[in-house]
Design a protein around this nucleic acid. Structure first.
Lengths: 232, 232
DNA sequence: GCGTCCACTGAAACACGTTTCACCAGGAGC
DNA sequence: GCTCCTGGTGAAACGTGTTTCAGTGGACGC
């Protein structure tokens, strides 16, 4: 429950308690670190994280450049800090707002919520995706936790009302869905798919696995790389 | 058939013929560009592409730095050129070497071949994955083509011996598999999964979708984030 | 009050991707 | 042969992430 944005964002396994939550918890952060994070978020709102200069982050947050590097070992690490910080915001919404009549609808609702969370702020979302795929150690650890936590939420949504543990097949379905979703997000970040296409294809995939091969809805299947506009 | 590694790697849609192949064809390249590519590949073999300095690429290939930038508009663009170049190597192997008794085996064989192609040279493989997810325009276009071409190959493998067009569900299955594969590769690049885990989970997913929910093999299901060593 | 320690500061330096520019060589057209 | 144009060259400069370092001020034990 401790970790999250505390000094030197995990990575070195120093503060590594597990937290079953989606993000890393409310994340108690000291004043300075918080100022740095807020400065980074603020500056990133314009041109995206890529356009943020650490010198500016330092200046805006009123600390020396060296202090930024004392808290975050690299720009990438700072981004990871920001992501963890933001992720906490969507955390409880997941379990609260997800309702629906059938299993499929509930599943998709979860992914829709998260998709919106990213797609609503393209700069931020793209930065998240890019960072997730960059293969950095600190991010990889967070991703594993996120993957696990999200899997629990999705499984719970899948089994709502049924008092039994998930079958291996159901666990697999959830895992596959998460991976498909991630891949679709990468496509979105590259401008290949828009939000609607993401949910379309995800829905098709979920239907395929839940209802069986023979009951896939016709319309929802898109040619190889799901066309679609570019915006949101 | 023209494009591939020619000057200014696509991106600007200038040389953009479609090529149904996996890569972009044998890619006729002028002498200088070839030297640059080879220098980049050679230098990347040690510390990965990240450790390659463009100044060195220029020096090793015997051209001026400006010339490198004349052919490739950025380091990322150079990497994309290298990837296209290497991808051509695995191209024909895909359709030649894939055999197998049943559909599932054939499917997995294709992905295994490509997985090895990346995993055998971790530095290169990681660079490919990272680049694929970076959301750059030039790479996104290549990815779309690759996705489409690979889909055709996989569909062909799925339908070997049957003279009929694929059903929408089959197309969807292939697309989902590709996405799962990609996501697993990202996990590999982050050191979360090894080659075996990739093929394990991919096989499970394929079995799930081809044979149905009830016939998923027991062993192949891994906890949330498919554990596994780190090597290869 | 005094010494010790440690985080922060300010500023400079470094590394490397990227840009710019003046200059030159070789081929095309005349 | 002369001019023009295109593309290469060499070198310098710029921008920004990252590192380094001497100094400074507050906290804490004594």
């Amino acid at each position: 429950m401790t970790d999250g944005i505390t000094s030197h964002n995990s990575a070195s396994g120093v503060h590594d308690d597990d937290d079953a939550g989606i993000a890393d918890g409310p994340t108690v952060v000291d004043e300075r670190t918080l100022r740095i994070l807020r400065a980074a978020i603020g500056l990133a709102e314009d041109g995206g994280f890529q356009a943020v200069r650490l010198r500016d982050v330092a200046q805006v947050s009123g600390v020396a450049l060296g202090t930024v590097y004392k808290r975050f070992r690299s720009k990438e690490d700072l981004l990871i800090g920001v992501i963890s910080h933001e992720l906490a915001a969507v955390r409880e919404r997941l379990t609260l707002e997800v309702t629906g009549d059938d299993r499929l609808a509930r599943l998709i609702a979860i992914f829709a919520l998260l998709t919106d969370f990213l797609c609503d702020r393209p700069n931020f979302g793209r930065a998240v995706i890019r960072s997730a795929a960059a293969g950095e150690q600190a991010m990889a650890e967070r991703l594993v936790r996120f993957h696990g936590a999200l899997a629990e939420v999705v499984v719970a949504a899948l089994l709502t009302g049924e008092a039994r543990p998930p079958t291996p097949a159901e666990i697999l379905v959830v895992s596959v869905l998460q991976r498909v979703w991630f891949s679709l997000l990468v496509g979105w970040a590259s401008g290949i798919q828009d939000r609607a296409a993401i949910l379309d294809e995800l829905t098709s995939a979920a239907a395929l696995m839940i209802h069986g091969v023979d009951r896939v809805p016709e319309g929802a299947i898109s040619p190889p790389a799901g066309r679609g506009g570019r915006s949101r």
